[in-house]
């Protein structure tokens, strides 16, 4: 495959105080890669995801989005982004989907979806509305476009949040446990939308506990343990005979080993 990887992260370290959560993690995502990040809670996978779009600032390491390096400077011994403008730009290129949806509660679903394109990308409103309605159609909640987030089920809210991220036409999508806050019967509708995105060739990084998604949809599985990558590989290897003892034990908890 030609060109720089969509996402390249090198040797990310992150400490909270004296507690080191990430101990040097590297990852590369090429166009169309769907990478599942697995690990027990506390293994640092969410923190790692949040470091990529700088919701957490990594203590050390390099991040490249589409070949563009996020410039960092040392300020008072701490790593800081050199330019807020670059940070905003990088964030606008990476769609983020949160565990608890994080929709803006005072805006309707449609307003949530057009907010970024209209106010961050400064595109014409009418165009954005047409695209937003198409996206909401795609995730199956176009009939709810004039409703407020509080009036939707968790699954509908999460699909709206995915549409909001897609409206920015992101180069890659980051999913932070997108189904963990959902009632079991609502998980399927969100996973279906994510699977459709994967099939369209969207580059995706997914922190998840959904083993079926990791096994059947992603083309790479990364297993994190205590702040390092324990093992990584294609799902058929990871879930097959090539699994590390720690990973085998981990998936054993899900009754899928």
């Amino acid at each position: 495959m030609s060109g720089p990887p969509r996402l390249s992260v090198r040797n990310i370290r992150k400490s909270f105080g004296t507690h080191e959560v990430l101990k040097g993690i590297s990852l590369e995502a090429r166009d169309g890669d769907v990478i599942s990040l697995l690990g027990a809670s506390g293994s640092g996978k969410s923190t790692f995801l949040r470091c990529i779009n700088l919701l957490e600032i990594a203590t050390e390491g390099e991040i490249f989005v589409d070949g563009e390096e996020i410039r960092m400077v040392k300020k008072g011994g701490h790593n800081q982004p050199a330019s807020q403008k670059q940070v905003d730009h990088i964030r606008s290129e990476l769609g983020m989907v949160f565990q608890s949806f994080n929709l803006w509660s005072h805006m309707t679903i449609l307003q949530n979806v057009i907010e970024g394109p209209v106010h961050v990308l400064k595109r014409p409103r009418a165009e954005c509305i047409a695209e937003a309605e198409a996206l909401l159609e795609k995730v199956g909640i176009v009939d709810k476009r004039h409703a407020y987030p509080a009036h939707l089920s968790g699954g509908q809210q999460q699909r709206a949040a995915i549409a909001r991220a897609l409206a920015m036409k992101p180069k890659a999508m980051l999913f932070d446990e997108p189904t963990s806050a959902l009632d079991p019967e609502l998980v399927g509708e969100v996973l279906r939308v994510m699977r459709a995105l994967a099939e369209e060739g969207m580059t995706m990084l997914v922190v998840t506990h959904e083993m079926s998604f990791a096994r059947n949809v992603s083309n790479r599985v990364v297993f994190m343990r205590e702040g390092v990558v324990d093992s990584a590989g294609a799902p058929q290897d990871m879930f097959g005979s090539g699994a590390s003892p720690a990973f085998r034990q981990f998936i054993g908890h899900f009754g899928q080993a």
């Binding site: 779009n53 919701l55 905003d88 730009h89 964030r91 606008s92 990476l94 983020m96 949160f98 608890s100 994080n102 929709l103 803006w104 509660s105 907010e115 970024g116 106010h119 961050v120 949040a161 909001r164 991220a165 920015m168």
Partner: peptide
């Protein structure tokens, strides 16, 4: 959460 969502979109 809502502030974070705004930051994540580039605001």
């Amino acid at each position: 959460r809502e502030i974070e969502a705004a930051r994540a979109i580039g605001m």
